[in-house]
C-alpha cells in the first residue's frame, strides 16, 4: 500500500512535465480500451488474432511511411481492414490459427520490404522510425496526438460497453445466442474491427510488438481473479490502466528503462501474481471443499442473459 502512496506522490510531481501529461492522457485512454477489448479477446480465445493484428499494424505503418502518408492512416487502415477480413473469411467471425499465421507471416515479410524501401528512400536519420513503430514512443506524443489517442480510446471503450451484453452472450455460448436471435456473426466481425482499432491505437503507445502484453496480460489476470463477467471487465480495464500508470512512473524514476518495457513488465507481473494467487486459492479450496471465487467455472449462458 505504501508503494502505491509513494507512486501517487511521484505522479503529481511527474504531471508538471507536459510530455508526461500527454503520455498519461493518451496512455489512460489506450490502456482502458486495451483492458476492455482484451477481456473479450481472452474470453473468445482470440489472443493469436491480436498477435497477428499487431504485426499487421507494423506493416501498415511502414507502408504509409514508405508511400509518404501519415503513419496513422496506414496503421488504422491496415489493422481494421485485416481484422474485418479475418472475421468475414473465418467461420462465424473467427479464423483458423493456421490461416491467421500464414497471413501474418507474409504481412511481416511485406513489413520488412516497406522498412527497406523507407530507409533507402529517406536519407539517413530515419532508421528510428521502424524502431518506434515496433516498440512505441509514448513520450514523443504531441498534445494534439495525445488528445486524439485518448478520444479514440474513449470511443472504443464506449463501443465495448454498448455491445458488452450481447457480445458476452455470443462469446460464452454461440449456439444458444444465435438461437436467441443475437446476430453472432455481425458481432464477431464488429468486435474484430474494434480489436483492429485498439491495435492501431496501442501501437503508438507501446509499439506493434508489445501491444499484445497490454491486450492479453491484464485481461488474463482479470479472468484468473473473477468469473463474474462485468466485474472481470471492469477489473481488466483497471489493471491495464494501473500497468500503464505504474510503467510510465517507473520509466520516469529509472530513465534507463524504456516506458514500453516498463508498462509490459508491470502487466506481466500483475498476470503472474494473479495466476499464482489463483493456483494457491484453488489448491486451498480443493482441500477445504469450498470455492474461493464465488461461482465455479466460466460464466454460464443464462447468467449472462440475466446479468
Amino acid at each position: 500500500m505504501s508503494t502505491l502512496v509513494a507512486m501517487a506522490g511521484s505522479i503529481t510531481s511527474i504531471l508538471s512535465h507536459p510530455f508526461l501529461r500527454h503520455a498519461f492522457l493518451a496512455g489512460t485512454g489506450i490502456a482502458a480500451s486495451c483492458g476492455l477489448v482484451g477481456y473479450f479477446v481472452v474470453l473468445r480465445g482470440q489472443v493469436f488474432t491480436g498477435d497477428a493484428l499487431s504485426h499487421v499494424a507494423f506493416t501498415g505503418a511502414l507502408a504509409a511511411l514508405a508511400a509518404g502518408f501519415d503513419l496513422r492512416l496506414g496503421l488504422f487502415g491496415a489493422t481494421v481492414a485485416v481484422a474485418v477480413g479475418m472475421g468475414v473469411l473465418g467461420r462465424s467471425g473467427r479464423a483458423d490459427d493456421v490461416v491467421i499465421g500464414s497471413v501474418f507471416a507474409w504481412m511481416l515479410g511485406l513489413g520488412v520490404l516497406f522498412l527497406s524501401i523507407y530507409t533507402a528512400g529517406s536519407s539517413g536519420s530515419n532508421g528510428t522510425a521502424g524502431v518506434s513503430v515496433l516498440f512505441g514512443s509514448i513520450l514523443g506524443l504531441s498534445g494534439g496526438a495525445a488528445r486524439i489517442a485518448a478520444a479514440i480510446g474513449g470511443a472504443v471503450c464506449a463501443g465495448i460497453v454498448l455491445v458488452a451484453r450481447p457480445l458476452l452472450f455470443a462469446s460464452v455460448d454461440e449456439g444458444i445466442a444465435a438461437a436467441a436471435g443475437v446476430p453472432v456473426r455481425a458481432l464477431g466481425v464488429g468486435f474484430l474491427a474494434l480489436v483492429g482499432v485498439t491495435a492501431a491505437e496501442t501501437t503508438q503507445a507501446v509499439g506493434a510488438l508489445l501491444l499484445l502484453g497490454l491486450l492479453a496480460a491484464p485481461a488474463a489476470a482479470a479472468h484468473r481473479l473473477t468469473d463474474h463477467p462485468y466485474r472481470g471487465l471492469a477489473l481488466s480495464a483497471a489493471l491495464a490502466v494501473l500497468a500503464m500508470w505504474a510503467g510510465l512512473t517507473l520509466s520516469y524514476v529509472f530513465p534507463a528503462t524504456p516506458p514500453s518495457f516498463a508498462v509490459v513488465a508491470v502487466a506481466t507481473v500483475i498476470y503472474a501474481a494473479a495466476a499464482g494467487r489463483g493456483t494457491v486459492l484453488r489448491g486451498l479450496a480443493r482441500r477445504g471443499g469450498r470455492n474461493p471465487s464465488g461461482d465455479n467455472g466460466s460464466p454460464r449462458a443464462e447468467e449472462v442473459e440475466h446479468a
Binding site: 474470453l43 492479453a216 488474463a220
Partner: peptide
C-alpha cells in the same frame, strides 16, 4: 483460453526484455 493468454504474455514480455537489453 488460458494457454493462449499465457503464450501472449510470455511473448510480449520477451520482446519487451529484448527491447530493454538493446536500449
Amino acid at each position: 483460453r488460458q494457454e493462449s493468454a499465457l503464450i501472449g504474455t510470455v511473448q510480449a514480455m520477451a520482446l519487451a526484455s529484448g527491447f530493454l537489453f538493446v536500449s
